[in-house]
Nucleic acid binder design. Structure first.
Length: 437
RNA sequence: CGGGGCGUGGCGCAGCCUGGUAGCGCGCUUGUUUUGGGUACAAGAGGCCCCCGGUUCGAGUCCGGGCGCCCCGACCA
């Protein structure tokens, strides 16, 4: 993308309303613009990050055997009356009426709707298990939205649902999802730590929250430093072998991690002192097993092997996709701006033409741009070097390709790594190879 | 939902107490200048002062009502 033809409205001064760093940086980098309290428009670079995160989620869901669907944002109140949650949910649920005065709502979650879909479509235990998910906008009318996209009222969320014929199968689904989540967050370039959690209004008796480690996190967390070394991408347990999944699950759940509310001093004392870590975390996902709560309430049953009716066991699995954009920034930034992990960055590299209009630098930049295509943001503004450096640092591209008259004369490009500040003078070919590696 | 604060060119703010031609910095446009970390100079453009009502000869300023947004706390993917 050429910067002169893009809507990337970076700003130098910090907007007054933004208190925390990710909110400030998202506004300053031109990723989002606020429309109402807790409601944001996503501009081109912000949306690219949102899509990158969503696509990592998709890839890992597919690997775990989940199928993507898309359900409507607007739901009927009657559906929620079936489960009893229409009255139970409270003012967080945005209730609306259509022109015929029918009661509707903007979905805060979708257990009821998918249970109804399954009820209409699945009659036999042979059709189970099923794991389905969507990535869709949700609305929860928070009393006090804040922290930009970390605590918005409208948010983009991956919500998945499992349906199993019996308890053992349901637990296996739960464990598979936990593995998928660990891989998902690791691929995004951040560390997530799973912790036992309360089930809250969704109900059920098994739940974990996933927190990203960030000094500005909302909750205090305690964890074993072993979590910092676990690698679920390069040493992937097999999804198809339940015993491998169980080994994974045991390793995760036997390693200490707790939010300050659930912190247990006795178990903490069992963690070797050198491995004890105290920090702060941002919750970016939560998974639940809740059994037959909805299938019974809504009358979803299948015929079992012996011909009797059984209510499937359910679990649900959430990832805050829009929240993750902010959470990753909280975990990865410096005084100059965002430092995007490669996997989610809106562009792999920025091309900085320090002397726009100079035939030599222009040519070199155009060649780089041709080699990188959509992976690059070409800063072709007729602006001063300092401004281009500042904006590139602010936007946080993993690589900066700096082209000035000095090096351009000999065909050299300066390649800077945003995260480390490392710089190297390279030929065009070598620079491209390194960025695309 | 309790407590506090703020709405003035795109952004950050002053002006309000004590009513009388709407200002500053940044940004934007044009020209010159500068050219590896937000250059300097000059000339410009741009404002229903959140909305409605009241007081007054006159309201950004005073009074009443509304709306919006932010912060602290309780609550939450």
């Amino acid at each position: 993308m050429r910067l002169t033809r893009s809507l990337i409205p970076t700003i130098k001064e910090t907007p007054a309303e933004a208190q925390i760093v990710s909110h400030r940086l998202m506004l300053r980098a031109g990723m989002i613009r606020q429309q109402s309290a807790g409601i944001y428009a996503w501009l081109p670079t912000g949306l690219r990050v949102l899509h990158n995160i969503a696509n990592i989620v998709r890839a890992e869901q597919a690997r775990a055997g989940a199928q993507e669907i898309l359900m409507p944002t607007i739901q009927s109140a009657d559906l929620w009356r079936e489960s009893g949650r229409y009255d139970a949910y409270g003012p967080e649920m945005l209730r609306i009426r259509d022109r015929h005065d029918r009661e509707m709502l903007y979905g805060p979650t979708n257990e009821e709707m998918l249970t109804a879909i399954m009820r209409d479509s699945v009659q036999s235990y042979r059709d189970l298990p099923q794991m389905l998910y969507q990535i869709q906008w949700k609305f929860r009318d928070e009393v006090r939205p804040r922290f930009g996209v970390l605590r918005g009222r409208e948010f983009y969320m991956k919500d998945g649902y499992s349906f199993d014929p019996d308890y053992a199968s349901a637990v296996a689904s739960y464990r598979r999802m936990m593995l998928a989540y660990m891989r998902t967050f690791q691929r995004m370039g951040v560390r997530a730590v799973p912790m036992r959690a309360d089930t809250g209004p969704i109900g059920g008796d098994l739940s974990h929250e996933f927190h990203i480690l960030a000094p500005t996190g909302e909750s205090g967390i305690f964890y074993d430093s072993d979590f910092e070394h676990m690698d679920w991408i390069h040493s992937l347990p097999g999804y198809d072998d339940p015993s491998e999944i169980d080994i994974f699950y045991d390793q995760i759940t036997q390693t200490y991690a707790a939010t300050d509310e659930k912190h247990d001093l006795n178990s903490w004392a069992d963690v070797p002192e050198l491995r004890r870590r105290e920090g702060r975390g941002i919750e970016v996902g939560q998974i639940f097993y809740f059994g037959k709560k909805y299938t019974e309430a809504m009358g979803f049953s299948v015929t079992g092997p012996d011909g009797s009716k059984i209510h499937p066991e359910m679990g649900s699995y959430g990832i805050g996709v829009s929240r993750l954009t902010g959470a990753i920034i909280e975990a990865s930034h410096d005084d100059a701006g965002i430092i995007w992990p490669d996997a989610v960055a809106p562009f792999r590299a920025a091309i900085l033409n320090l002397r726009q209009g100079d035939a030599t630098t222009d040519k070199l930049c155009e060649d780089l741009y041709a080699g990188l295509g959509d992976a690059a943001l070409y800063d072709d503004r007729p602006a001063r070097a300092g401004e281009k450096f500042a904006d590139a640092d602010l936007m946080g591209h993993p690589w900066q390709l700096i082209v000035g008259p000095r090096g351009a004369a000999t065909g050299q490009v300066e390649l800077k790594r945003r995260r480390t500040g490392e710089r190297a003078e390279l030929s065009l070919t070598d620079a491209l190879a390194k960025v695309l590696a």
